[in-house]
Amino acid sequence: MLATPKQLRELGILGMNRRNVSMIAAKNPRHLYPLVDDKLKTKKIAEAAGIAVPRLLAVVSQERSVKDLPRILEKYRQFVVKPSNGSGGKGILVVTHHDGDNYVKSSGDQISMESIQRHVSNTLSGLYSLGGRPDVAMIEALVQFDPIFAEYSYEGVPDIRVVVYMGFPVMAMVRLATHESDGKANLHQGAVGVGIDIATGQPLRAVQHGRPVTHHPDTRHKLSDVKIPHWDRMLKLAAACYDVTGMGYLGVDIVLDQNLGPLIIELNARPGLAIQVANGIGLLPRIKRVDGLTDVLKKPDDRAEWSMREFGML
């Protein structure tokens, strides 16, 4: 039932302790964390660097601006309200359309303007933020999810997680929500992870709860048929996040917009290790390859291309 440390070493699997000491503590400077933890800051530096992100429509940072919300929101048919320092998807309100004063949430429930204002007010006072700190509310454009994933995901929105080491995309997976994960793309809650070949964007294998699966448990679609369009664009986007954040060990979460293509929705300074299970291989050999690289590749596009050449599995 147990693997031996030797077996794991041979597979090059990165363990939690090593991740904390050699990756996070050594490669992610503490003072840069706010760039990643604060979504508003992330969005601003990303936009400034020309990295595609969901468009920021408005920011509400003061209680007195809450009363202006009807005027601000009036002109947008769809929008998402997000706490800038939220965690675990808390406090995200998605409005899919409205006519007049009737706003409709993604669940189909109606919601009044007052409720939206109260939600924003709660966000400002820190109801959804880590440690209850006062926060700001971001209002951003709703991503038009590419229907290509629709049949592979239950309820929730699939995203693509790329782990970027010193600017090089080293591993990737697609996270598909399931009924069990309650619409969340979180692997330890029962979402399905599909490892993706860095060179081609083809699926390698899929796991749920660490065990291999072949079909999505709810939609019954074959997971080996998952296809990811714009793969090289995605990797270049992910690689570019290193330059704007300075984080040596970074998790980049990407969603696919029908019209705009890949968009960065979140960065993570402490990306988890489940991606190795989804890919069936360890991170360490790839990290060593990057460490051993003598050429200096300044441009993110060059790094992404290098990764695609080096890390192909198919």
Partner: peptide
């Protein structure tokens, strides 16, 4: 090094 729980976690790999 690895934690004992990780020997279990990564065993399917």
């Amino acid at each position: 090094g690895y934690r004992l729980s990780e020997l279990r976690r990564f065993e399917p790999m």
